[in-house]
């Protein structure tokens, strides 16, 4: 059974004239690491709001079809219950961090769920260890750098031990090195905890070394879904105006010059191998 399943899902926000997402059918297995992309307004954020139950419980509107998360139909569970299965991290951690210090921030979620004190402390220590936050526990969120704040936001989602983590442009405000560290952290969590991860991101090259799947949306629909090499070399990706990484643009041009080059590299490693091989 897939961990997440969308069955003919469409959603229209309360006052909107058109659908934000339309006829979505989607299955996501446990342990996948997925890049969700598409131009602004294509429905990416609406799609992930359906997974953690913000739609339909918080954002009013017309929902059609069914969304099953970990065996539960989202319309039949509360957002609080779903938050123990699905964690979410936003673009701007300042909007998400509410507590006086990092320790309180990490305790906030599990305390609200009524989890026993001892268990909360154990979880906080585990997460702080894993995300290298131990030295920051008594700091206030505003004393932290952007990258540290984003690590705290991820950590506070993890203290509820979710099976799924959703991230909406988590690196948009970070410098390139901090952005790279956040993506590497997600990769570690994906591998070590078998955490299912869905990231919304416009800068696709950041994720090419890590994701197993890319979902591309346009006008509320999924227009391509598959391995990074399949989606990013597709006509749909070219047409929809997605930000195709330079490495792929380079290979597209090279392939026009040399039809012998048949592979579709998406990572630097694959690119090096492809050129070595064809020049042998």
């Amino acid at each position: 059974m897939p961990l997440i399943e969308f069955k003919n899902v469409s959603f229209k926000y309360g006052d909107a004239e058109s659908y934000a997402i339309k006829d979505i059918n989607l299955k996501i297995d446990e342990g996948e690491f997925i890049l969700l992309t598409g131009s602004t307004g294509c429905g990416k954020t609406t799609l992930i709001r359906c997974i953690n139950g913000l739609i339909p419980h918080f954002h009013q509107g017309a929902l059609e079809g069914e969304i099953i998360v970990n065996g539960y139909s989202t319309t039949e569970c509360t957002v609080a219950f779903l938050s123990t299965i699905v964690g979410i991290v936003f673009q701007n951690p300042e909007n998400q961090l509410v507590s006086l210090n990092v320790l309180r921030e990490l305790a906030f979620g599990p305390e609200n769920m009524g989890i026993p004190r001892e268990e909360i402390n154990k979880r906080i220590m585990e997460v702080a260890e894993k995300l290298e936050l131990k030295h920051l526990l008594d700091k206030t969120p505003i004393e932290l750098s952007g990258g540290e704040q984003q690590r705290v936001a991820i950590a506070s989602a993890l203290t509820l031990k979710p099976r799924i983590l959703l991230l909406d442009e988590p690196t948009a405000n970070l410098d390139p090195k901090s952005a790279k560290m956040i993506i590497e952290l997600l990769d570690t969590l994906n591998k070590s905890l078998n955490l299912t991860i869905i990231v919304i991101e416009h800068r696709l090259e950041l994720l090419m070394d890590y994701v197993n799947r890319v979902i591309l949306m346009e006008n509320g629909r999924i227009i391509a879904d598959g391995k990074p090499s399949e989606v990013l070399y597709s006509h749909e990706a070219e047409r929809s105006g997605v930000n195709i990484p330079r490495l792929i643009r380079f290979f597209k041009k090279l392939k026009e010059l040399n039809p012998k080059l048949i592979s579709n590299p998406v990572t630097i490693r694959e690119g090096v191998e492809a050129l070595k091989k064809v020049s042998e």
Binding site: K177, R246, L247, F250, I268, R269, G271, L275
Partner: peptide, 15 residues
């Protein structure tokens, strides 16, 4: 400066 090279730069270096 916590910057990373452009993807093409990194690719060229590896090549």
């Amino acid at each position: 400066s916590s910057l990373t090279p452009a993807q093409i730069t990194e690719f060229a270096w590896r090549l």
